[in-house]
Amino acid sequence: MDLLEVEKVSKTFNQNGVLMPVLKEISFRVREGEFIALVGPSGSGKSTLLRILNGLIPPTQGRVLYQGKVLPSVNLDSAMVFQSFALFPWLTVLGNVELGLEARALPEHERRKRAIHFIEKVGLDGFEEAYPRELSGGMKQRVGLARALAVEPKLLCMDEPFSALDPLTSLTLREEVLMLWEDKSMPVNTIIMVTHIIEEAVFMADRVLVLSPHPGTLVTDIAIDVPRPRDRKDPVLSEFSDRIFSLMA
């Protein structure tokens, strides 16, 4: 069975009485274990689509099925990583990661244990008592990752997770996210990532879904059938990038 089925999803926002169509009849399926990238220029509604996929906002038309069932509200089997990190400045790294577990009704010692486990998994051990303002962008995003992973989601949604980072830091974080995704001991095995960087999508994903803007429409769904580990300089990856770029231009 597919993990996620997206059926003719449309979304229209009402802006001061004016109807703004953002997404139009988007359909695709996601199998368990896939790494999907959603790419498109600004205005293609890719971040809105990501929020519909994990139930943060409802579609205007169409439906999203998770494991064969319609999503009634937020999908508790999924977690989100945000571009802006979305950390609480008054909480330490440990506090921020534990907070994500509070809604899951776990006993306190279990929360602590799990938070520490995932802090280690993302390489943040040593930073447990640091506050967000003491951290670099790369470390802040690792907190965002640890917080998302700690709820042990089946589906990890990432919205432009590397866009706020400097180029060298994003190189490191991309590799680390791939290491986590390939780590068999991690509960998460399906990732949907929104990005506007085509090379990033092609390097990381199994499939790249390309959206066109105003309103967002699914233009194409390309399988990146290149074995892993991948080489960023692989000419085959560049060909995929060129193809996607020409579709978006």
């Binding site: 790369g138 060298l168 830091t169 490191t172 974080l173």
Partner: peptide, 10 residues
Amino acid sequence: TSSKVIGLLE
């Protein structure tokens, strides 16, 4: 940061 140095190595 360590992320920048490792990014350089990558």
